[in-house]
Design a protein around this nucleic acid. Structure first.
Lengths: 163, 163
DNA sequence: ACAGCAAACTTGTCGCTACAACCATTCCCG
DNA sequence: CGGGAATGGTTGTAGCGACAAGTTTGCTGT
């Protein structure tokens, strides 16, 4: 079968990365559920909207910014809409597209949730790494993402945070 | 509230890591479902057992090796047992504990599934990184894991793959 | 020797996500 | 300008994981 197996250094890195993939999301999710009553994904939907001009975005663009499929986002927006945190309205120019706007209530929600979440990110990720490691991590994640999204469609999103 | 925000380098790294956390598991899962009819987690349960002496393990130990909670593992083992890939039997010494053994059918399953999965890991992770980056990644993941599991209970698992 | 506590699982339920199917517009182009 | 493809989004369904609760077995101290 001629399988290219993993050698020791590769296995070392992969086993640990897999553990992070498995454990870290749960920790972030648990903190936000407990302290803000939000899923981590719900939080990032709100947070992404809060950073968008007009606090409004098309569904498709929002799905890029949050790394989600459109059906997933649609369901989540439905739930958030039911809680009064966002509102939908259709675009008069192209009536296929739906716009999502963060309500004042949603804005307040994300404002309250942010400090705790950021503190968690600090504690579990940022503060454990040296500045050099942060740069290394950015480069490593970049390389992996390039394979995950070869077209680079949503890759432009990440470069927003480059200098 | 005195919130320690994220500066540019921190944000760069975090946004990218978050994208990887969101996207990579789905890709790995999709490949295994398509080619082997297994969840990524199911695969790692079988794979972990296949590397254990006697192809047998206690539930609790298995949950450490796979980074899973016990309820989750219990459900999954129930499903795998129904498919004939593993079998449960209780330990005579301590009748609280349950042993799980990989059946021959399960062994064959993991043997068939492994090449495709390893190839996917190569393609999406290992091959995109330089040897230096692999070492950096191992160190970075180690630092993060140390915070996720401060007791170091399951941390010993990872060091199996050290030289 | 037995009361209380901890360990090791199992089970039940709820909510979220993936996948597929579907519908409504708009674009393309001969 | 009309018909097929492409775009943008929603909805239905099935399955997995988190959390909480329950059960059985072993341990500990007095």
């Amino acid at each position: 079968m001629d399988t290219p197996w993993l050698d020791r250094p590769q296995l070392r890195a992969w086993v640990r990365l897999r553990a992070v993939l498995e454990l870290l999301p749960g920790v972030l999710d648990a903190q936000l559920r407990r302290d803000a009553g939000l899923t981590e994904f719900e939080y990032y939907v709100l947070a992404t909207l809060s950073e968008t001009p007009g606090r409004t975005s098309r569904m498709t663009e929002l799905s890029w910014g949050t790394n989600a499929t459109l059906p997933r986002l649609s369901h989540v927006v439905t739930r958030l809409e039911g809680r009064g945190l966002v509102e939908r309205f259709s675009c008069p120019r192209d009536r296929r597209t739906t716009h999502v706007r963060l309500t004042d209530e949603g804005w307040e929600k994300v404002r309250q949730a942010a400090p705790g979440h950021v503190a968690t990110v600090h504690h579990h990720v940022v503060d454990t790494l040296t500045p050099e490691q942060l740069d290394q991590l950015a480069a490593i994640a970049d390389a992996i993402l390039a394979r995950l999204d070869p077209t680079g469609t949503s890759a432009a999103i990440y470069t927003r945070y480059d200098e």
